[in-house]
């Protein structure tokens, strides 16, 4: 590191101990310029960051062991009771099961559709920009707003599905009373919103495959299916691993779709962890339950989060 040239004052040749105070300070400052600047710039950031990281981090665990509404009577230590309730009460277990079901179903559908669409878009087709835009746009919409609009589609009597059934002469279906159908609606809606990012990722992955691989294989007499099977699929595998592992973090926190479409109903059949946590905190006034639920969800996603950071810092998908 080259410093700006400074005129060396005569005092510089004197030993340090014989210098005056200000001069010694000036030299010290010059020697440690980078460290001083780093700490001056970084300290406010670090203090702020610690306040909003360490404090919630520690209190999250503390709150999860108490019974507390957030205001009113002081917290009461209840030990592991909150956790035990999450893991034994059927109501909460249902939320776990639904979250797992939604997360896995959404992720698998989303990823497989994204691969197929990316493969199609990677060919020489006219109007690629339009298709890509059409697939990407749903992900930019507010989940809360569009869930509201989708709610209109399944309204009995005037919704699209009701109309189609009536046209076919079939009896109308009341979506809100059918857990299986509402689950499907939630999954389809979430896939609709979430698939675009995957398409873009896979397109990038496909375009980063060197064309020489294909040329070499073609020279060796490989047909198109073989090209796909022996070149494209293996080269997409790391990306797929990445998309699946990190995608679960997002899909497991599904919330808006449930809040706007079902509120967890009918009979708790579509309840998910995020919605249960929200209800514990604000409807049931139990921050302890909410916090312990959040911690359980966080622990379930721990492995994904760690892999996510590894990918971020290592800058590659496989080690």
């Amino acid at each position: 590191m080259i410093e700006a040239p400074v005129r060396i004052p005569p005092a510089a040749i004197l030993p340090e101990s014989r210098l005056s105070g200000p001069e010694r300070f000036r030299r010290w400052r010059q020697r440690n310029r980078q460290a001083i600047e780093a700490w001056v710039l970084m300290l406010p950031l670090l203090l702020y960051f610690s306040l909003f990281f360490l404090f919630p981090f520690v209190s999250s665990f503390l709150i999860s062991f108490v019974k507390w509404a957030g205001m009113g009577p002081p917290p009461v230590w209840v030990g592991l009771t909150n956790y035990v309730r999450w893991l034994t009460d059927l109501y909460y277990l249902q939320a776990f099961a639904n979250t797992a079901l939604f997360a896995v179903a959404i992720l698998l559908l989303q990823t497989s559709i994204a691969i197929l669409v990316a493969l199609m878009l990677n060919t020489k087709v006219w109007g690629r920009g339009f298709y890509r835009t059409a697939w990407f746009i749903p992900g930019l919409t507010a989940a809360s707003v569009m869930a509201n609009i989708v709610g209109l589609f399944i309204t009995p009597g005037t919704g699209i599905f009701s109309l189609m059934l009536t046209k076919l002469g079939l009896p109308d279906v009341i979506f809100y009373m059918r857990p299986d159908l509402m689950r499907m609606v939630i999954i389809v809606y979430s896939v609709w919103r979430g698939v675009g990012g995957g398409v873009i990722l896979y397109l990038a992955a496909l375009q980063s495959i060197h064309p020489e691989f294909y040329e070499a294989a073609r020279v060796d007499g490989a047909n198109r299916v073989q090209l796909l099977r022996y070149i494209t699929v293996p080269l997409l595998a790391p990306m797929t691993l990445f998309v699946l592992v990190t995608g679960i973090i997002g899909t497991a926190q599904i919330f808006e779709a449930v809040q706007f479409l079902t509120k967890g109903g009918p009979q708790n059949q579509t309840n998910v962890l995020m919605f249960a946590i929200y209800q514990e905190a604000f409807s049931n006034g139990s921050l302890g339950m909410a916090s312990s639920g959040a911690i359980l969800l966080g622990l379930l996603l721990l492995v994904s989060s760690i892999i996510n950071i590894r990918v971020m810092t290592k800058g590659r998908i496989q080690d």
Binding site: F52, S59, S60, I277, L302
Partner: peptide, 15 residues
Amino acid sequence: MTLPGIIYLIPTYVM
């Protein structure tokens, strides 16, 4: 970032 953001939600609300 090791722990998912969801864990910070409730305590930050309390904060």
